[in-house]
């Protein structure tokens, strides 16, 4: 793996909040590497350190031990601060508290304005970013009249207008209803597949982690599991031991295996799960219990 393929790299990352006692580390010697173009979920319950890790990815927090590199830049290097922040955009949980302006397109223009981009280039970027998240026709609306999902997509557009290589989303769907959550998830999947933007999705919803290419599970400031969603969710006991649920499909197969059925523990989607159960039943005895039409 060449160095240029790596966008985020944390080496022995440690972080302690000033208010916490000496021994209480929010990040505890953590190593992580994210490649360009990855669609990665960081899963963990509250207090596992996942938000603290996210804040290291664009220098909101600086490690108290170890080092964090963004596209080869050390985030502790003050001269690189704005370059780091342009490279890695951040989207937060509450869309209301990250929208600055009163009109959608003016909010999207905020970052390029800060960066001193020329007026006609800002216009181009704003239109492009709004089209990328499917909010172009809302460009002249007031943000407070939009739905939660729409607001969050505006927030994502506001980050895209910086033309970042990577977007880190810190529980972007926690405050949304199912419709809004789907809008946001579709948008980030599309940005990843069509524009090749690296996505780091911080979440505690396993359904969201299941749509990513790779899942990193965090527990007490360390990485507890790292792999494809199938690999990670197959570790049912580990997931339960750290208070995380697994998808109902996996849970069912896990229980059936315990009862002696021979089903591989890697069916994540509804289709896969039904197929797996079906084939395990038919291998037992020629499928005579299956109704024929």
């Amino acid at each position: 793996m060449g160095a240029s393929e790596i966008i985020l790299q944390g080496k022995d990352l440690s972080y302690r909040y000033e208010s916490s006692p000496e021994s209480d580390l929010a990040l505890d010697g953590l190593n992580i590497t994210v490649k360009r173009g990855e669609l990665l979920a960081v899963l963990g319950h509250n207090g596992s350190g996942k938000s603290t890790l996210a804040k290291h990815f664009n220098a909101i927090l600086l490690p108290t031990g170890g080092a964090m590199y963004v596209a080869g830049m050390d985030t502790s290097d003050e001269d690189m601060l704005y370059l780091v922040r342009q490279t890695v955009g951040m989207v937060f949980q509450n869309p209301d508290n990250q929208i600055v302006a009163n009109v959608v397109e003016e909010d999207v223009a905020f970052a390029p304005e800060n960066l001193g981009v020329e007026t006609h280039e800002i216009r181009k970027r704003v239109d492009d970013a709004l089209k990328a998240v499917g909010m172009y026709e809302y460009r002249e609306h007031a943000p407070h009249r939009l739905s939660g999902g729409q607001k969050q997509r505006v927030a994502i557009a506001g980050v895209i207008a910086m033309m970042p290589e990577c977007i880190v989303l810190d529980e972007p769907t926690a405050m949304l209803d199912p419709v809004g959550r789907n809008e946001v998830l579709k948008t980030i999947k599309k940005l990843n597949s069509e524009r090749g933007i690296t996505i780091v999705l911080i979440t505690h919803h396993m359904e969201e982690a299941a749509i990513c290419d790779r899942v990193v599970v965090m527990e007490s400031g360390r990485i507890a599991a790292d792999g494809t969603p199938k690999e990670v969710f197959a570790k049912v006991e580990l997931m339960k031991s750290i208070d995380l649920a697994v998808p109902q499909t996996i849970e069912l197969i896990y229980r059936l295996r315990k009862r002696g059925l021979d089903i591989p523990l890697d069916a994540l989607s509804v289709e896969e799960c039904a197929e797996a159960i079906m084939s395990s039943l038919s291998t037992v005895g020629g499928g005579s219990h299956v109704r024929n039409y």
Binding site: Q86, F92, E105, E106, A109, F110, N114, L115, G116, I122
Partner: peptide
Amino acid sequence: FRRADELAIAMECRCYRGGEGRTSLRQ
């Protein structure tokens, strides 16, 4: 207070650093 705190971080993440060198969507 909570909103102010979160908004400040969000603005910093979008490279806000005061008026210097700032351009505008509308001329």
